[in-house]
Amino acid sequence: MNITGIWISIGLILVFLIFSCQPIHSDLDASGVTLRVLNPRGEITLPPLSPPSKRIPDLKGKKIGLYWNEKPGGNHFWNGIEQLLKEKLPETTILRYSGAFDLGDQLAAKMARETDAFLYGVGD
Protein backbone atom coordinates (compact mmCIF):
# COMPACT_ATOMS: atom_id res chain seq x y z
CA MET A 1 0.00 0.00 0.00
CA ASN A 2 1.44 3.36 -0.97
CA ILE A 3 1.21 6.51 1.15
CA THR A 4 -1.91 7.74 -0.64
CA GLY A 5 -3.66 4.46 0.03
CA ILE A 6 -2.77 4.70 3.72
CA TRP A 7 -4.23 8.23 3.97
CA ILE A 8 -7.40 7.16 2.17
CA SER A 9 -7.78 4.18 4.55
CA ILE A 10 -7.27 6.41 7.61
CA GLY A 11 -9.83 8.88 6.25
CA LEU A 12 -12.43 6.16 5.67
CA ILE A 13 -11.87 4.77 9.18
CA LEU A 14 -12.34 8.26 10.68
CA VAL A 15 -15.52 8.88 8.70
CA PHE A 16 -16.86 5.50 9.86
CA LEU A 17 -15.98 6.25 13.49
CA ILE A 18 -17.57 9.70 13.39
CA PHE A 19 -20.91 8.39 12.09
CA SER A 20 -20.98 5.17 14.10
CA CYS A 21 -20.46 7.06 17.40
CA GLN A 22 -23.59 9.25 16.95
CA PRO A 23 -26.45 8.36 19.35
CA ILE A 24 -29.32 6.70 17.51
CA HIS A 25 -31.95 9.33 18.52
CA SER A 26 -29.91 12.43 19.02
CA ASP A 27 -32.44 14.51 17.11
CA LEU A 28 -36.04 13.48 17.46
CA ASP A 29 -37.10 16.09 14.91
CA ALA A 30 -35.18 14.07 12.36
CA SER A 31 -35.90 10.53 13.45
CA GLY A 32 -39.14 10.88 15.53
CA VAL A 33 -42.17 13.11 15.92
CA THR A 34 -42.29 16.38 17.82
CA LEU A 35 -45.57 18.12 18.57
CA ARG A 36 -45.75 21.71 19.67
CA VAL A 37 -49.19 22.06 21.26
CA LEU A 38 -50.87 25.24 22.40
CA ASN A 39 -51.84 25.87 25.98
CA PRO A 40 -55.62 25.63 26.61
CA ARG A 41 -55.55 27.46 29.95
CA GLY A 42 -57.17 30.86 30.25
CA GLU A 43 -55.15 33.72 31.63
CA ILE A 44 -56.10 34.63 35.16
CA THR A 45 -55.74 38.10 36.52
CA LEU A 46 -55.39 37.61 40.21
CA PRO A 47 -56.60 40.43 42.43
CA PRO A 48 -53.89 42.16 44.46
CA LEU A 49 -52.84 39.68 47.12
CA SER A 50 -53.26 40.60 50.74
CA PRO A 51 -52.36 38.76 53.92
CA PRO A 52 -54.98 38.04 56.58
CA SER A 53 -55.54 40.80 59.11
CA LYS A 54 -53.37 41.11 62.20
CA ARG A 55 -54.48 38.72 64.95
CA ILE A 56 -55.54 39.70 68.46
CA PRO A 57 -53.27 38.01 71.04
CA ASP A 58 -55.64 38.70 73.92
CA LEU A 59 -59.37 38.39 73.24
CA LYS A 60 -60.33 39.56 76.73
CA GLY A 61 -63.05 42.22 76.46
CA LYS A 62 -63.33 41.79 72.69
CA LYS A 63 -66.37 41.07 70.55
CA ILE A 64 -66.44 38.00 68.32
CA GLY A 65 -68.90 37.74 65.45
CA LEU A 66 -70.21 34.37 64.26
CA TYR A 67 -71.50 34.35 60.67
CA TRP A 68 -73.54 31.50 59.20
CA ASN A 69 -75.33 31.32 55.84
CA GLU A 70 -78.51 29.69 57.22
CA LYS A 71 -77.93 26.29 55.67
CA PRO A 72 -80.06 23.81 57.63
CA GLY A 73 -78.34 22.37 60.70
CA GLY A 74 -75.53 24.91 60.82
CA ASN A 75 -77.33 26.83 63.53
CA HIS A 76 -76.81 23.88 65.91
CA PHE A 77 -73.08 23.82 65.23
CA TRP A 78 -72.79 27.57 65.82
CA ASN A 79 -74.90 27.31 68.99
CA GLY A 80 -72.24 24.90 70.26
CA ILE A 81 -69.40 27.20 69.24
CA GLU A 82 -71.08 30.15 70.97
CA GLN A 83 -71.54 28.17 74.17
CA LEU A 84 -67.92 26.97 74.16
CA LEU A 85 -66.54 30.44 73.45
CA LYS A 86 -68.47 31.82 76.41
CA GLU A 87 -67.03 29.09 78.61
CA LYS A 88 -63.45 29.51 77.43
CA LEU A 89 -63.47 33.28 76.98
CA PRO A 90 -65.97 34.51 79.58
CA GLU A 91 -64.97 38.13 79.13
CA THR A 92 -65.73 38.26 75.42
CA THR A 93 -69.03 39.15 73.80
CA ILE A 94 -70.48 36.93 71.08
CA LEU A 95 -72.59 38.44 68.31
CA ARG A 96 -74.47 36.28 65.79
CA TYR A 97 -75.02 37.15 62.11
CA SER A 98 -76.61 35.26 59.23
CA GLY A 99 -77.51 35.78 55.60
CA ALA A 100 -76.44 34.78 52.10
CA PHE A 101 -73.36 32.72 51.16
CA ASP A 102 -71.63 36.03 50.56
CA LEU A 103 -72.79 38.45 53.21
CA GLY A 104 -72.27 41.48 50.94
CA ASP A 105 -70.56 44.79 51.56
CA GLN A 106 -73.27 46.29 53.77
CA LEU A 107 -73.40 43.45 56.29
CA ALA A 108 -69.61 43.07 56.13
CA ALA A 109 -69.22 46.72 57.13
CA LYS A 110 -71.72 46.32 59.97
CA MET A 111 -69.96 43.19 61.21
CA ALA A 112 -66.54 44.82 61.00
CA ARG A 113 -67.86 47.82 62.91
CA GLU A 114 -69.58 45.84 65.65
CA THR A 115 -66.94 43.14 66.24
CA ASP A 116 -63.19 42.77 66.72
CA ALA A 117 -62.80 39.28 65.25
CA PHE A 118 -65.06 36.79 63.52
CA LEU A 119 -65.68 33.19 62.50
CA TYR A 120 -67.34 32.55 59.12
CA GLY A 121 -69.11 29.39 57.96
CA VAL A 122 -71.24 28.50 54.95
CA GLY A 123 -72.39 25.06 56.03
CA ASP A 124 -70.04 22.85 53.99
Binding site: P52, S53, G65, A108, A112, F118, Y120, G121
Partner: peptide, 15 residues
Protein backbone atom coordinates in the same frame (compact mmCIF):
# COMPACT_ATOMS: atom_id res chain seq x y z
CA UNK B 1 -67.91 37.04 52.25
CA UNK B 2 -65.12 36.11 54.66
CA UNK B 3 -62.71 38.22 52.62
CA UNK B 4 -65.00 41.26 52.76
CA UNK B 5 -64.71 41.36 56.55
CA UNK B 6 -61.00 40.49 56.65
CA UNK B 7 -60.11 43.32 54.29
CA UNK B 8 -61.85 45.74 56.65
CA UNK B 9 -59.21 44.84 59.24
CA UNK B 10 -60.96 42.25 61.38
CA UNK B 11 -59.13 38.95 61.87
CA UNK B 12 -61.24 35.93 61.05
CA UNK B 13 -61.25 32.18 60.61
CA UNK B 14 -63.14 30.43 57.82
CA UNK B 15 -64.81 27.21 58.92
Amino acid sequence: GYYRVEKLGNPGVYV
